[in-house]
C-alpha cells in the first residue's frame, strides 16, 4: 500500500504528535472528566491509523511491527489483572489500594488511573494490530517469502 501525497504527509507529520498527546491527556484525566481508558485508547489508535494511512505500509512496518502490538496488548491486559490481584493483598479482588486523594486533583481516584492506562494500552495496541493486519495485509512470513 502506497502512502499519500507530500502535502498530506507533512501535515500529518505535524499533527500526529499532538493527537497522541491529546490521547494521553484523555487517558490520564479519565477520573476527572469525560474520557478514560477506552476513549483515550481509541484516540491514540486513530492517530496511529492516520500515520499509517498517510505514510503507507512500509513506513508503518518500520514504526510498529505486529509482534510489538501483540506484546503490548497482552501486557496491557496483564497489567489490568495485576491491579486486580494487588487489590487482593489489601482485602479483596479489585480493591482500590491507593489513597483516594482529593477530588478534582490529578492525584485522586487511587488505582483508577493505573487501570485506565492498562486498558488504554490494551485497546490501542490490539486495535492497531488488527488494523495493520486488515488494511496493510502485511504478514511477516509472507514478506520474508517475497524477498
Amino acid at each position: 500500500m502506497k502512502g499519500m501525497s507530500p502535502i498530506v504527509r507533512s501535515i500529518v507529520g505535524l499533527i500526529a504528535g499532538f493527537v497522541m498527546l491529546y490521547g494521553l491527556y484523555v487517558v490520564s484525566t479519565g477520573h476527572l472528566g469525560p474520557g478514560g481508558g477506552f476513549a483515550g485508547g481509541v484516540i491514540i489508535m486513530a492517530g496511529t491509523v492516520m500515520l499509517i494511512l498517510a505514510f503507507g505500509g512500509d513506513k508503518a512496518r518500520e514504526l510498529m511491527e505486529e509482534r510489538r502490538c501483540h506484546v503490548l496488548q497482552g501486557a496491557g491486559a496483564l497489567a489490568f489483572l495485576v491491579v486486580a490481584l494487588v487489590g487482593l493483598w489489601y482485602g479483596g479482588f479489585f480493591v482500590n489500594f491507593l489513597p483516594t486523594g482529593r477530588v478534582h486533583h490529578l492525584h485522586s481516584g487511587g488505582a483508577i488511573a493505573i487501570s485506565d492506562l492498562a486498558i488504554a494500552m490494551s485497546v490501542a495496541a490490539g486495535l492497531i494490530g488488527i488494523f495493520l493486519a486488515l488494511i496493510i495485509g502485511c504478514r511477516a512470513a509472507m514478506f520474508k517469502k517475497d524477498k
Binding site: 479519565g30 477520573h31 476527572l32 478514560g36 491486559a77 486486580a84 479489585f94 483508577i112 485506565d116
Partner: peptide, 25 residues
C-alpha cells in the same frame, strides 16, 4: 468520597464494577 473520582462513570467502570470491565477487556 469512596473512590475520589469526579467522573462517576469512570468510578463505576473501574472501581465499583471492575469485574465487568475485566470481562469486557
Amino acid at each position: 468520597e469512596d473512590t475520589g473520582a469526579a467522573n462517576t462513570v469512570m468510578g463505576i467502570l473501574l472501581d465499583y464494577r471492575a469485574y465487568d470491565t475485566l470481562g469486557e477487556a
